[in-house]
Design a protein around this nucleic acid. Structure first.
Lengths: 177, 177
DNA sequence: TCAGAACTGTATGGTTACATACAATCATGA
DNA sequence: TCATGATTGTATGTAACCATACAGTTCTGA
């Protein structure tokens, strides 16, 4: 009983993944790696009072001018409600501000403040440093290979997501909520 | 269950990754891919009344006999409290049962039932089918390359995770290789 | 023997995110 | 014009997970 199973899979010999149960294969390794990346960012960004989500939002606002919350949500791949909460937090800390759109009274234009820009610069430093550590000993070619494989994999995943699961056997829903 | 559900992304489903600010690089692609895998499993397993987490627990119990909850939690890489809740759910559905350990009155020995075994077999089918779809057009060599790169990346991540206290990361010495 | 440390499972509160529902506001077509 | 449908941001309820704290139990060392 050493570290977590993630470490188990990571330190194991990648050539024989058959001793592992069905839940410790490439897909599982990938999800564990993603969790580790998430945790690493959260850990480093905690010093700035941010999480990966809020830092991503801040960085997006720093780069692309004032935008609506819906656009932020789309870019970050999350719902509008959560984005609104994140804007609430960044606004309460003085890093962003909401201004009404003169041409559309439904929306807020979220813009970054000066202190927000300073923080975004430090977030970029953290990002740069962390990515540098991640890439130690992994060549540019390797990274390109990894990215290409991930893209191909994700295409397959998206394709299988859009298949309407017609093969749902019996098993009544039994959704008691 | 409609198309907007999947398109909107139950766990976020970003689509563009190349023209990208610092937040759309390899690390982001990896996390997005992991989310997509998670969502795909959840979608397919919903027909069995399970999620990826509960299905993983069930599969683990099906393969390795009665075990304590702490061991389940360690294997699944999650906390003991959540594992207890998941066992509660599987138990209420009749798929697992808790029996006292004769030699240790602190622990429960969680064992799978006959109906649980049946369900685990169907979970294995879902897993097999989904992995097959994911690997379409990706050769075995590619998969090995991907796994190897992920392992190397995760080693770097774990190393950078352990350098939390010091503000000046001092180029940790590579242990081997 | 036995006091203190360690471990197991559970309770609790907090965080993050989703899905739905809703009011307010635009946009479209007859 | 104006009724109908879309869109935006928010409120609400739910779900999953974590971290901490705790009682009961086991283990360890003097």
């Amino acid at each position: 009983m050493n570290a977590t199973n993630a470490a188990n899979g990571a330190r194991g010999n990648p050539t024989h993944e058959l001793d592992a149960p069905p839940w410790r294969r490439v897909e599982s390794t990938l999800m564990a790696t993603a969790s580790a990346i998430h945790a690493a960012y959260d850990q480093r960004l905690a010093g700035l009072g941010l999480t990966l989500s809020t830092a991503s939002l801040l960085a997006y606002l720093a780069e692309f001018g004032p935008v609506t919350q819906t656009r932020c949500a789309e870019h970050l791949g999350q719902g509008r409600a959560v984005t609104g909460t994140q804007v609430d937090k960044l606004q309460s800390l003085g890093y962003v501000e909401r201004r009404p759109d003169p041409t559309d009274r439904r929306v807020w234009l979220v813009s970054i403040t000066d202190t927000g820009l300073d923080l975004a610069a430090r977030v970029a430093d953290v990002d740069e440093g962390l990515r540098g550590e991640f890439r130690e000993g992994i060549s540019r070619t390797d990274r390109q290979t990894l990215a290409a494989l991930l893209v191909r994999l994700q295409e397959n995943i998206n394709r299988s997501q859009h298949v309407s699961s017609s093969s749902t056997p019996q098993q009544p829903e039994s959704n008691h909520q």
